[in-house]
Nucleic acid binder design. Structure first.
Lengths: 182, 182, 182, 182
DNA sequence: CCTTAAGCGAGACGGTACGTCCAGTCTTTGG
DNA sequence: CCAAAGACTGGACGTACCGTCTCGCTTAAGG
């Protein structure tokens, strides 16, 4: 009976959030500004998202969806390098918002949880699978450590800003991981 | 000629900030609360720090000053493990504020710079030295990547929260780094 | 379409302002205190009034609305005395806030205008009528001067505080006005 | 032994206050601004004046000093008219600050007292003398009422702003006072 | 076709913190 | 002891968002 939620509002909200981020960083993405920019009432935002952080999460986790394609050739090290290269490429496109999101998550446990559930954990699992194919004999713990090293290197560069995670890092990481787990 | 700034106020402000962080996280560290807790006028805070973020920066950067002791035994892999173990231990003691600091730095380019200068770069250089002693033949680029992998793993765990960087990670990292650069 | 402004908040704000004035004079009527006392957010005050002064204005102008009853007996001097007596009586009840209002108006041209329109001019017109009935031959200018003398005496006593405008002054003013315009 | 107070500072302070009033009204006359403009420390102001209001009083009551010259010819009504004319003229020159001062005095009992002592009372006494010479038989109370009417009319016009107290008012006031007390 | 329940844009609501500005006091160094 | 300078506590200012609540209006679906 009730009127269904407007799909137009859905996209308008997330678009507005992304546009505002582009213009003024995370600080410009206030719920009020998003609602105004989207031509939507504040309540329409809060009907969809619990709070500001949920909006932020939705806006950029949506963007980051579906970017995890697992190559499955005969050469596991090539597969690994390719996977990381693609990942870093996709990341690079959204480096700024993801960096901000990770930072924001440090202040908001709930957002941190969401980030892990929607983003981190899946990627860790996928990389772990790839590594196990690469080195079937490696211990669970070593695989976990290598996963943290690979993603850690990427985030570390993003956060510290001394270098960019790109194809070169992907190649090197694949090589070093192979050697480490051999 | 004018009255000099009160050193008592200096320490009272930073102490108050740290205590409030301990009690309620970053959100509890408002300028107003800091001033009240420190028994100081708000203006006295704003005379020292441009804004809330500057207060946060000062409070945690002061805490995070400290020695990086480099072990130099005959066994480079042991040295590496020991170095990382100590580092992770020292970090762990201030994990929460440092996590917040790194997050805050993502919103404050100036703080990010300070953080690198006072923290990150020194530790990266030290680790790079250790790695070069461990694997004299390794390329500069590989060493850099391994440094990012090691510190990256630590920060990544801190930020994502799925695991703690502790002695076990230190050992494993040392082992994997050895293997990777061999 | 939006939710209409709360009438309860309207009255709560002005009541709070008046009560605070009663307790601590004009100095006690801060926007923050008003909001707190009224059980209202600061923004709710600022949504209605441009600033603190506008709140003060509204609070006392509302109080000061009231009838100017013109007695019309066969004895114009008695009528005059009665009119002034009533006026002074009504004034006396709100002497403090009105005194403050007149003072505040000296800093706020807009309020000064409002005060004249809602207050001063009507009373001046009424008194001028009464005086013309009392002394049909008096010049317009003399009548105007006497009006200023009568109200002036009242305000002067209020502002300077050396004496109170009461029935005695009303009688004397009526007598002197009669003599002056004869 | 003690260094004497600087006369230069004395005048610099009051000049600064008057200049600031000219530029931005009473609101611009803060103690800090006065001190800065006068090239003087805040304490030097507070050494001379109890508080901001005392500075204001000093700045404009000094200006208004010595303006009361009592004419003593054979024609008391002419004397009265002349006295009022001069008074209004002197007033007119400082109408704005005196208006502000009277307004401010409504919020600051101490200032109100000062204003009376240094200004109002002397003028009232002088006018009462003149009136007694004009009408030796008039009752004390009637004289007092006429004094309030005359000064009241002046202040009333100043405060309400519907007309200016000038020579015309002075003449009319003299005439009406004569008639009233006859 | 007509209820009816929920969605909608708009923006008011109680709160809380921000960063600014003065008041009036205190504390330096230097006449 | 006076002076200039400016730091000190204290507290109000007016602004900006947060997340909630409430208007009048619109839009399905089920009776």
């Amino acid at each position: 009976m009730p009127r269904p939620r407007s799909a137009a509002a859905d996209t308008a909200i997330l678009d507005a959030a992304r546009r505002l981020f582009g213009e003024g960083g995370l600080g410009a993405v206030t719920v009020e500004a998003v609602a105004r920019r989207a031509g939507v009432g504040k309540q329409t935002v809060y009907r969809r998202y619990a709070d500001r952080n949920a909006v932020l999460a939705a806006a950029w986790l949506e963007v980051a969806e579906g970017e995890v394609v697992v190559p499955e050739s005969a050469d596991p090290e090539r597969d690994l390098a390719l996977f990381l290269k693609r990942l870093f490429g996709a990341f690079g496109a959204n480096a700024e918002p993801l960096r901000s999101l990770m930072a924001q998550a440090q202040f908001e446990p709930e957002l941190r949880q969401t980030l892990r559930a929607a983003f981190i954990d899946r990627r860790r699992a996928t990389l772990a699978d790839l590594l196990r194919r690469l080195a079937p004999g490696a211990s669970q713990a070593d695989v976990g450590a290598v996963v943290d090293m690979a993603f850690g290197a990427m985030w570390y560069r993003l956060l510290v800003g001394h270098d960019t995670p790109g194809p070169a890092l992907a190649r090197r990481l694949a090589k070093l991981a192979s050697a480490a787990l051999a």
